[in-house]
Amino acid sequence: MRKRSAPASPWFAFVLLLLGTAGCAALWIMLATATGRQSSWMAVVAALDAALLLRMARVPAGAARALWGVLAAAVTILLANWFIAAAHLGKMFGLLPWASALKLGAGHAWTLSRLANDPVEIAWLGAGLVIAAVASR
């Protein structure tokens, strides 16, 4: 008979998910700035990463874990799009991406992201959220 391991601390799961989200967003931002493309397919990678981290943290299966997976993927998508827009804008003004991100307003970031993401990119972002829900449950 297989013995089930006890769930880890909720704080451990939260910190692990936070670090994974930041790392995946950083990778996405570097890829997008290196290629000059949005690389929205990384939303699927972010979704799978969130699902894997939630399972590694032994978060109990169910709707709550699926919600945490979708939330982590959505935060990764938002962070990546914000910093990609900031990196491109900051490049024109001679600012580092994180300096530009602090000066970028929400309305301006939203406009730049809408202009940069065509329907195919939006489909990748949506697919990432759906995959996060399914893979995390």
Rank of each mutant, 00 (worst) to 15 (best):
W41A: 08
W41V: 12
M42F: 15
M42R: 02
V44P: 04
V44K: 06
V44C: 14
V44E: 03
V44L: 15
V45S: 10
V45A: 15
A46I: 01
A46W: 00
A47D: 04
D49N: 14
D49Q: 12
A50T: 04
A50N: 05
A50C: 10
L53M: 11
L53N: 03
L54P: 00
L54A: 04
L54I: 04
R55A: 12
R55M: 06
R55L: 07
M56I: 15
M56S: 13
A57S: 13
A57L: 07
A57W: 02
V59Y: 00
P60Y: 07
P60K: 12
P60T: 04
A61L: 10
A61Q: 12
A63Q: 15
A64M: 08
R65M: 01
R65S: 02
A66Y: 00
A66E: 01
A66F: 00
L67G: 06
L67N: 02
W68M: 12
W68N: 03
G69D: 01
G69N: 03
G69P: 00
V70K: 01
V70D: 00
A72C: 05
A74F: 07
A74K: 03
A74C: 09
V75W: 05
T76D: 07
I77K: 01
I77S: 03
I77D: 04
L78W: 06
L78M: 08
L79K: 00
A80M: 05
N81R: 15
W82L: 11
W82V: 10
F83G: 03
I84E: 02
A85H: 00
A85M: 07
A85L: 09
A85C: 10
A86S: 06
A86P: 05
A87G: 13
A87T: 10
A87R: 00
H88G: 14
L89V: 09
G90E: 00
G90D: 01
G90A: 09
G90V: 05
K91T: 12
M92W: 07
M92P: 03
M92H: 06
F93A: 10
G94V: 06
L95I: 06
L95F: 14
P97D: 03
W98F: 15
W98M: 13
W98P: 14
A99E: 12
S100I: 06
A101C: 07
A101H: 02
A101N: 02
A101Y: 01
L102F: 13
L102E: 13
L104T: 12
L104R: 05
L104M: 15
L104Q: 04
G105N: 09
G105V: 08
A106P: 03
G107D: 08
G107Y: 09
G107R: 11
G107I: 11
H108F: 11
A109G: 08
T111N: 11
L112M: 14
L112Y: 05
S113G: 13
S113C: 12
R114W: 13
L115W: 11
A116P: 05
A116H: 06
A116R: 07
N117S: 15
N117T: 11
N117L: 12
N117V: 06
D118M: 03
D118A: 11
D118G: 14
P119T: 11
P119L: 05
P119W: 11
V120F: 15
E121F: 07
E121A: 14
E121I: 07
I122Q: 15
A123K: 06
